[in-house]
C-alpha cells in the first residue's frame, strides 16, 4: 500500500479538527476503505481513525426510536437485544451484510457514509425513515442518498448516529450476490403510523423509495398487491450479475416476500 499519515483522535471534536482537507479521510471499520486504498481507488494523504471515539458507539432506545452510534459494528446491531426486540428486521439486515469478519469490523456509519449502491443499510435508512445525525445537523433519510456513492454529507461532515423510528412491522428481503454478499436487490418494507414505506437498495444508483409499491400497499397490505406493481427498468443498474429488467422485477418480488414476512 502507498504511504499515508494516521491520526487517532479520542473525541469527536478532535476528529473534526483533524479533517481539514479533502485529502484527509475518516476511517471507520475500514472494510471498504482499506481495500479501496490497496487498489489506489482513493489515495488520501492521511486517515483519521474514528475507532477509539467512545461517543460514536452504542445502541439505545430513545422514545419511539432506536438510536445506533455510527461506530457500532454490524455484528453488534445483529446481536443487540434492543434492536432485535424493537426492529427485528434491522437486526436481520445487519446479520446479512458481507461475512462474519466484515460484520465484526464494519460499522453502520461507515456503510451509510460510503453509500455503496448495493449496501444493505441504505434500504433500512430509506425504508424505515431514519434520521442521520452528524456533527453539525440532522438529515432526513429520504434526503440523504443522492446518487452513486453520493450523499447529502458535506466534505468531512461526520455521521455520529442513526435514529430509526420503531415501525409497527417491518421486514427486509434480499437477493445476495453469492460471492460478495452485496444486495443484487434488497427491499425493506415497513408499516408505520405514517403509512407504508418501501426502501430499495441494489437496484438503482442509490437507495430509493418504491412509491408505486407503497401506494399499492396502502390500498391493500398483501403480497399480491406488491407483486402486482410492475417497476420500470429505466435507470436501474445493469451488470454481469443482473440486467436492469431483472432488478426491476426483483423489487416487486422481494417487496411481496417482505409483506408476507410482516404478516400482511
Amino acid at each position: 500500500m502507498y504511504a499515508f499519515e494516521y491520526h487517532r483522535p479520542s473525541s469527536l471534536d478532535e476528529a473534526v479538527a483533524l479533517l481539514t482537507s479533502e485529502d484527509i479521510k475518516p476511517l471507520a471499520g475500514g472494510q471498504t476503505l482499506i481495500p479501496t486504498l490497496k487498489q489506489r481507488l482513493a489515495m488520501p494523504e492521511a486517515l483519521v481513525d474514528l475507532g477509539r471515539i467512545e461517543a460514536l458507539k452504542g445502541i439505545r432506545k430513545e422514545g419511539d426510536a432506536i438510536v445506533i452510534g455510527a461506530g457500532t459494528t454490524h455484528a453488534e446491531v445483529a446481536a443487540s437485544e434492543v434492536v432485535r426486540g424493537a426492529i427485528p428486521a434491522l437486526a436481520r439486515l445487519a446479520g446479512l451484510i458481507g461475512d462474519p469478519q466484515v460484520r465484526n469490523r464494519g460499522t453502520i456509519g461507515g456503510s451509510i457514509a460510503n453509500a455503496d449502491p448495493a449496501a444493505d443499510y441504505p434500504a433500512a435508512v430509506v425504508g424505515l425513515g431514519a434520521t442521520i445525525h452528524t456533527n453539525t445537523r440532522t438529515i432526513a433519510g429520504d434526503d440523504y442518498f443522492q446518487d452513486l456513492f453520493t450523499t447529502a454529507l458535506d466534505e468531512n461532515e461526520l455521521i455520529t448516529a442513526v435514529s430509526f423510528p420503531i415501525p409497527q412491522a417491518a421486514a427486509y428481503e434480499k437477493v445476495a450476490n453469492p460471492a460478495s454478499g452485496y444486495a443484487v436487490v434488497g427491499v425493506m418494507v415497513a408499516k408505520t403510523a405514517g403509512g407504508v414505506r418501501v426502501g430499495v437498495t441494489g437496484a438503482g444508483p442509490c437507495a430509493f423509495r418504491a412509491t408505486a409499491i407503497e401506494d399499492a400497499l396502502a390500498r391493500s397490505f398483501t403480497p399480491e398487491a406488491a407483486k402486482g406493481v410492475a417497476m420500470p427498468a429505466d435507470g436501474m443498474n445493469s451488470d454481469i450479475h443482473a440486467s436492469a429488467a431483472y432488478r426491476a422485477a426483483l423489487i416487486s418480488v422481494l417487496a411481496s416476500r417482505a409483506v408476507a414476512a410482516c404478516g400482511g
Binding site: 487517532r8 475500514g30 482499506i34 481513525d49 475507532g51 462474519p100 469478519q101 466484515v102 465484526n104 469490523r105
Partner: peptide, 14 residues
C-alpha cells in the same frame, strides 16, 4: 471476534 487481518491496519489494533 474474528477479523480479516489483511483488512485491518496494525495501528488500529494497538
Amino acid at each position: 471476534v474474528s477479523v480479516k487481518s489483511c483488512t485491518a491496519l496494525a495501528v488500529q489494533c494497538d
